[in-house]
Write a protein that binds this DNA or RNA. Sequence first.
RNA 1: GGUCUCGUGGCCGAGUGGCUAGGCACAGGUCUGCAAAACCUCGUACAGCGGUUCGAAUCCGCUCGAGACCUCCA
Length: 491
Amino acid sequence: MNEISQKIFLYNTLTRRKEEFIPNHPPHVGMYVCGPTVYGDAHLGHARPAVTFDVIYRYLKYCGYKVRYVRNITDVGHLENDADEGEDKIQRKARLEQLEPMEIVQRYTNSYHRNMDQLNVLRPDIEPRATGHIIEQLELVKKILKNGFAYESEGSVYFDVENYNRKYPYGILSGRRLDELQAFSRELEGISEKRSPYDFALWKKAQPTHIMRWPSPWSDGFPGWHLECSAMGARYLGETFDIHGGGMDLIFPHHEAEIAQSVAANGKQPVRYWLHNNMVTINGQKMGKSLGNFITLDEIFSGNHPKLEKAYSPMNIRFFILQAHYRSTLDFSNEALQAAEKGYKRLMEAWNTLQTLTPTDESTYDANHLRNACFEAMNDDFNTPVVIAHLFEAVKTINNAKAGTEKLDATQLQILKDTFSTFLFNILGLVDEKAGDNSRLTEELIRLLIDIRLEARARKDWATSDRIRDQLKELGIQLKDGKDGTEWSYL
RNA sequence: GGUCUCGUGGCCGAGUGGCUAGGCACAGGUCUGCAAAACCUCGUACAGCGGUUCGAAUCCGCUCGAGACCUCCA
């Protein structure tokens, strides 16, 4: 069994402090992240938590932890709002597209997976669906009812926030107090099944037209939104597990409700470390479904959206996300994306250059310093932008080594290679997008053309020389005339 | 109205008391038949005002501005 190699500090939303990460049962780590509700294409806002927690998952594993990573798929349609009226989101989409709700769920689960694969996001170890855990959810409702923290009303079951708050503080995650919440309730609906506006549904009685429904002791209906994560988290990770992640917009009410449900059922806190990624913004405003200002990942990858000047590749997006710390907002713009694209390419070119370096007898560089600095950054609440900054520093060294102004002996070269591949590929999860299609045949054909061009140039036959250069460029291949001959790369 | 973030050089974006991250753009240079690409070099910025301190982007107060959550949302 591996030793745990790093001391990691992470910011816990629950305590609002950075804390040392000490799992409940090392080396095992249980991590749960809120996945998507599958009723639409994934957008940039979905990419952020996926990439963020992917890196955390990768890093914890790298450090020697045995991680069980659970990320759910919400496939029960939940109501558009918490009022008693309203169609659920999946059913609405199903009606619009004339499909079975489960067809909607499957379609968008598939496209979500496809997008995440493109972003090189590792699949979680368990990806449970809410509809596959109705029994667990029913059991949880019963438990909460039995403990006196819920009540039945018109076939629905609601969590009794006020009663809960008498015994346990409600609002510990979001820093709210119930009386403050109640002082400014937006809710104005006259008649409600709920005793208090801040009570939330554990089980909802289905309207006659509601398609997704299951039998229960109280009614034919469906589970409340917050319930699935409590039920599935406990099912696969235990009543108290280590890390729960998600977007900051889920802190209230979703995660707050999760805590209340779990505490009401089991009498203990479900999660030790709550981690939340910040939002992707566009023109300084949150990108979100309700605002309608989102850009889907397919649109970004294809460039097919009026706000996009061009297409941006999956690695471009991944790098863009990682260049900001996960708890900062990340503002979308064409300019920022194009800057990230160039930076990403520079990094990858340096990696390729690194492979071509030959060791010198002595060394003017200490690669261990880089290595340690990168670990230090990751250990400090997964500070990927700082890791990237360190790698860029190393890019200079690599280029200087190529130019001969910096010397790397065999040992330093090896450490540098290891560090680069570890952080760039294993931990940050980037891939060299251009490397894959680099077949031997292509390689040699281009080499041949370069040689012919070289001969033409020797004859000062510029027409032939430029023709080869220009036509290759049209094929997406760029020739780079340098001091030591001509190199090439994909555009 | 409540709770809470944030405001860093042209843009993005790190940084919690002294050691001026990094990327992109700009500029200069190297290379080159021309070009492109690449590479090298280069910027003391921290919303405003006041305070604490030997010293503040970093701590405190106020002002201005932006945003998040309080309804579904990653």
